[in-house]
């Protein structure tokens, strides 16, 4: 076997000669500086936007900015843009499974009273009476010992 002497790199189990490993990519400093600048601008943006009253749009806007920042960090600081494609696949599928987790759970908890309204009230509406949890009233705010449930 000829590969006994030469260093071996395996792709799909087959020895391959002369492969230039992608992880050796060296980005120029200027590109890091640009990304850093963009991250600072986006941080200022999300901070500034929080003072405007966007109503229901504020959460999506904040999330879009956060995702933009996260993608910059992943692609340039974490070199995902130049990395082995399987590492990218690992990362993206992680996000996908987080999405599955979120979607089903939030969907269920939002739909709980869709068919039978009582089903929901049991869990959420009647905490005070049903489970004995009583936050103090505003005027008697300084009641000693804190919680009513204890």
């Amino acid at each position: 076997m000829s590969e006994a002497t030469a260093p071996k790199v395996f792709i799909a189990g087959k020895p391959v000669e002369g492969v230039h490993e992608v992880h050796e990519h060296v980005s120029p400093i200027s590109s890091y500086v640009k990304v850093f600048g963009a991250l600072l601008v986006l941080t200022a943006l999300t901070y500034g936007v929080s003072y405007m009253d966007l109503g229901n749009a504020s959460l999506p806007v904040a999330m879009i900015v956060a995702f933009a920042k996260a993608s910059l960090v992943c692609m340039y600081f974490m070199h995902l843009k130049y990395d082995d494609r399987y590492n990218v696949f690992v990362f993206i599928s992680t996000i996908l499974f987080v999405a599955i987790f979120f979607t089903f759970t939030i969907f269920d908890l939002m739909q709980r009273d869709a068919v039978n309204p009582e089903q929901d009230t049991f869990f959420r509406a009647n905490f005070g009476e049903a489970f004995g949890f009583q936050p103090p009233e505003p005027p008697e705010g300084a009641e000693a010992g804190g919680h009513g449930h204890e």
Binding site: P7, V9, F10, E21, F97
Partner: peptide
């Protein structure tokens, strides 16, 4: 490991899998 490249690629894949668990 046979080569440094193989070792580096393995370590990096391991790290990405670890990051996946952190994210989850």
């Amino acid at each position: 490991f046979d080569t440094l490249e193989q070792q580096a690629a393995a370590a990096k894949l391991g790290m990405w899998l670890f990051l996946a668990t952190e994210i989850l």
